[in-house]
Design a protein around this nucleic acid. Structure first.
Lengths: 338, 338
DNA sequence: TTGTATGCGTTATCAT
DNA sequence: ATGATAACGCATACAA
């Protein structure tokens, strides 16, 4: 490393003040762009700053101002999701754009182990952020209750049951599911089944409810098969069982795109053509949707808007307004699988 | 919101001290787990802490200790790639695990606009982090030079041309690409094309260079097609164009697995069998590789190790050791696509 | 083992 | 318009 990188004591406001022959107060005013500072003083301070290489110490500033102008975004996802779900990137970007416009710094904190959980809690508690967005699919998340106890402005993206009653943003799974199933029915399907998952979460429950509403009187319990998780395997196995029960079915609503991908594979193995023989629709508009052949018709979640809305919820609380739960609109993306 | 969430003034060490009937010094010692504190005092302090609800103010602590025990990780990616690139998630997790073990908090800062770039630079300058990891900086990235000028311990993941001479970790994209293309050629392919991406980064440049070296005298510019990003769409479109130019090609090197997946889809749509008619190889060994049918032969990139190594480089500098550039090994994973 | 006093670098209040 | 001074909350060297 060359000499320019050797670390020497950082210049303080005092150094600038004496270099400029002015007081700390004046220097501070210049640095913060306040009024009541003469052009000459401003000049002198600016060149002194350049001369001594002054940069403001944020810790000191945060201490006296009692705020950090930073918002934490806590990512607590299983590895597989962090790797593949494009939604999380969009949420991040959405939150960032809102916070950036409000001149807040978004700092993302990831939780991978229990140790992380503790450290992140400490970080939040320490006053290094003025608020937090929590994105987490997990139920009864310890960090979530920790955040609640801190009493700092916070908002969830999604709303796993068992989490503290903090404001959250989400989508209306019931009407979204209903919309895509109605679209499926509109293609002329007569016997539509569902592979339902995660009925212990509201997303799972609500998607089933939407399905039930859409099919109406044609609803039959044995056209629904349930699995605990939104997985490819659930789709593959569930489809096999449904075909055994109802070889004549001509439509399937899978609770997620991954599930749909599994179901499609089983259908094709069993010689059913998609969409000619059986139409299939999914949910999420994740990368699975494009990797299927034919590509999946599905429900698109406005991930970036979720991030934006969550950030707005936090900002509102900081400003003392109270934050309301916000439900966002989804849209049907119609491709080739139905 | 109910009453427990109303914010009141945070308790300080003084509050604890008076509640416990002891001095601030003793309280501080207890909080920091230092020796020379009697069991009785410890008890008294602990219950006082619980009573007044004390949590330490990190800004104050950081100010006096002149360190933050946090490391910034700067993500500077185009929208579409953020988190859809599985490598980023792995790098994040890898860096996090190393820093977590060393009791440092990883804070991720994303740069999406010029405004972000400025704000992140301010954040780093302010002393809110003790070091930084910069991932996928692009050529002549302003934040990269800013970090260098700050003189804080830092390391790059990857090494775009034109960036400051800071330590970095990377893989040898040239020889990795060369290795897999040679393996492809060894299957008897005579006319091998490449879908190249991201030529504004070293990874893109080097993979192309590796390809060129491997094919040697058989290299022809029109067998290479270029795209700005490593995407499925680039693969699909690029393959279509290559087939138009050279209907008789029998091998393809895609610059990433996502690109290869897109290319494979196009090949199959055009009635080419993989690997019988055309052999295809990718790069990354991401989840795309396993979901393709047939599964992709590819280069395994140790993304988590890159994150770990970069974190270690930063930690080493903090400890005053000097950090050396580290190149990590890649390996060819041979499956069914070629 | 405990208490006291000083300083960390800013901002903000109040004079001037 | 500028300067002096008092916080902000904590850690720590030193005194007791």
């Amino acid at each position: 490393m060359d000499s320019t990188r050797t670390r020497r004591r950082r210049a303080t406001i005092n150094d600038v003040a004496s270099a400029a022959g002015l007081s700390r107060g004046t220097v501070s005013r210049v640095v913060n762009g306040e009024k009541y500072v003469s052009p000459e003083a401003k000049m002198a301070v600016e060149s002194a700053i350049a001369k001594v290489g002054y940069v403001r110490n944020s810790a000191a500033r945060n201490l006296v101002r009692q705020e950090s102008r930073a918002i934490g975004l806590i990512i607590h996802e299983p590895h597989s999701l962090l790797f593949e779900d494009p939604n999380i990137g969009s949420i991040l970007l959405g939150a960032n754009s809102v916070l950036s416009a409000a001149d807040y710094q978004l700092v993302s904190l990831i939780i991978d182990t229990a140790r992380d959980s503790q450290r992140v809690a400490d970080y939040l508690r320490g006053g290094l952020v003025d608020g937090a967005v929590i994105i987490s699919a997990r139920t009864a998340d310890p960090i979530a209750t920790a955040v609640r106890n801190l009493g700092i402005p916070a908002a969830f993206v999604g709303h796993p049951p068992g989490t503290p009653d903090l404001p959250y943003v989400g989508i209306d799974n019931v009407s979204a599911a209903r919309a895509i199933v109605e679209r499926l029915l509109a293609t002329g399907r007569k016997k539509v089944a569902m592979i339902a998952c995660a009925l212990d979460r509201d997303s799972g429950q609500d998607r089933l409810e939407g399905f039930r509403t859409a099919v109406g009187a044609a609803f039959r319990p044995d056209l629904v098969i349930e699995f605990p998780l939104y997985t490819y395997a659930a789709g593959a196995d569930g489809m096999a069982e449904l075909l055994r029960r109802h070889p004549d079915l001509d439509g399937v609503f899978a609770a997620s795109d991954a599930v749909a991908a599994g179901a499609m594979a089983t259908l094709q193995e069993h010689g059913r053509r998609v969409p000619e023989d059986v139409g299939i629709v999914g949910f999420d508009d994740s990368s699975w949707a494009l990797r299927c052949k034919p590509q999946l018709s599905t429900v698109k979640q406005p991930a970036d808007l979720l991030g934006r809305a969550a950030a707005e919820l936090v900002l509102a609380q900081i400003e003392g307004k109270d934050a309301e739960v916000r439900m966002l609109e989804t849209s049907v993306v119609w491709r080739e699988s139905a």
